[in-house]
Design a protein around this nucleic acid. Structure first.
Length: 370
RNA sequence: GGGUCGGUGGCAGAGCGGUCAAUUGCUCGCGACUGUAAAUCGCGCGUCUCCGGACUACGGGGGUUCGAAUCCCUCCCGGCCCA
């Protein structure tokens, strides 16, 4: 079902089908964590040519809650989004909550118990429950509950996280099979399921995790945990190595990556799919991505980031990017955008998110064409 | 004209004898943001600096004091009340 076209070096291009449509790789998904891309409406998303997006199990489970999602008829119906959706398991949220503050929860072999940061109520999540919720969401792609511990943990703790991630991967896969059977889901509507490869910056642990998960068998494999070191340096070697040990005919999902240049790098390593808050968040914060003239995405710096709040743009009545055809660049100037930000007008955030996502969409088009 | 309260850094507004170059908020300048507790967060914001400090500052002027944004006198300006 996954069609692969091999390209130069490690990079490649795949075509695969989900119940909500065909997807060509590489592709980037914005984070619609709580069922919406912050500040953007459906017309905005369609306007930039948006395809698949990411929603989050943990956030939707807490708000608005699964009762409402089910009542709406699933997350697609709730959002009125008919293109593919991938749900992240929520492992990242629960574990980072607990790793930052042990009082927020407890991890045992069987389950994770955590306190909702919203109202302090206690919740428990198991690998089985994470999968069941994702079936209730009705997404096209789902992710196993994993243990993404911080990279600076001692190796033995990361090794333990790897083993737990594998064991939980097994339980997720078993639950997945049960849900498929119980819900009578035909093969063509079957959601894809992803395991997540942990192991910090240790290549042997990444290998152990990838092999353990591959033995269980998944449609795709994700790269888990932070991909930058404590100084913010991108862990290229780990990303490149991990991509190389994932089964050839499986999807490679670089979770949480990244900046435009990180994505280009990872694509050259063989990663197929990406998601990140950067384009939308940085847009809302006033930082916009702008192509350099005659940009060659494989030649280092092909873009720059422009902080539209900088004083020097106050009197700049030219568009953010004269060659860009997004709603912002077609209609408004830099000086006007800065005015919107200074006035804290939500329109500024929306236009900037649109612009940055358009930039990312164009980047992915260029990668697919290259 | 009389009385009264007040004049503090871009703004608002603390401080009311030393620990004050002066709390705090906003504005302003810059930076960060990578499976979204993020319309958030951090740093800076008198001048100069060999980064230890030095200098000029709390309406103007004068005084008291070892020492004043803080007390006294006077002038200027503003609010309110009475004529």
């Amino acid at each position: 079902m996954i069609e692969i076209t091999k390209k130069e070096k490690n990079s490649r291009s795949l075509t695969f089908k989900t119940k909500s449509g065909v997807i060509n790789t590489p592709f980037f998904m914005p984070d619609a964590t709580r069922g919406f891309v912050k500040s953007m409406g459906l017309d905005d998303l369609r306007g930039v040519g948006m395809g698949p997006m990411v929603v989050n199990t943990y956030h939707l489970y807490l708000q608005p809650g699964m009762e409402l999602v089910k009542e709406a008829g699933g997350v697609h119906k709730l959002m009125n989004w008919d293109k593919p959706l991938l749900s992240d398991s929520g492992g990242y949220q629960v574990f980072s909550l607990i790793h930052k503050n042990p009082k927020m929860g407890k991890v045992t072999e069987d389950e994770v118990i955590f306190k909702s940061p919203l109202d302090g109520s206690m919740h428990r999540i198991t690998p089985e429950k994470a999968i069941e919720i994702q079936f209730d969401l009705g997404v096209d792609m789902m992710v196993c509950l994993d243990d993404p511990c911080p990279n600076d943990y001692p190796k033995e703790k990361i090794a333990a996280a790897v083993e737990r991630t594998i064991r939980w991967g097994r339980r997720c896969k078993d639950e997945y099979a049960r849900q498929i059977a119980a819900r009578n889901i035909p093969e063509e509507n079957r959601p894809l399921i992803f395991g997540v490869i942990q192991g910090g910056e240790y290549l042997d642990l990444r290998k152990r995790c990838a092999d353990g998960l591959a033995q269980i068998g998944f449609d795709g494999y994700g790269f888990g945990a932070r991909h930058v070191d404590s100084d913010g340096n991108f862990l290229s070697e780990v990303l490149e190595y991990t991509a190389s040990i994932i089964p050839e005919n499986a999807l490679r999902f670089a979770l949480g990556i990244g900046t435009p240049s990180d994505i280009v790098k990872c694509h050259s390593f063989g990663w197929d799919m990406f998601d990140c808050v950067i384009p939308t968040r940085e847009g809302r914060h006033g930082k916009l991505f702008v192509w350099k003239r005659d940009a060659d995405i494989h030649s280092g710096s092909f873009y720059e980031t422009v902080n539209m709040n900088n004083e020097k743009f106050r009197h700049d009545f030219s568009p953010v990017d004269a060659d860009c055809e997004c709603e912002l660049c077609r209609n408004y100037s830099r000086g006007y955008l800065q005015h919107l930000f200074r006035m804290k007008e939500p329109l500024g955030m929306r236009l900037s998110a649109i612009h940055n996502l358009k930039f990312y969409m164009e980047l992915m088009e260029k990668l697919r064409a290259s």
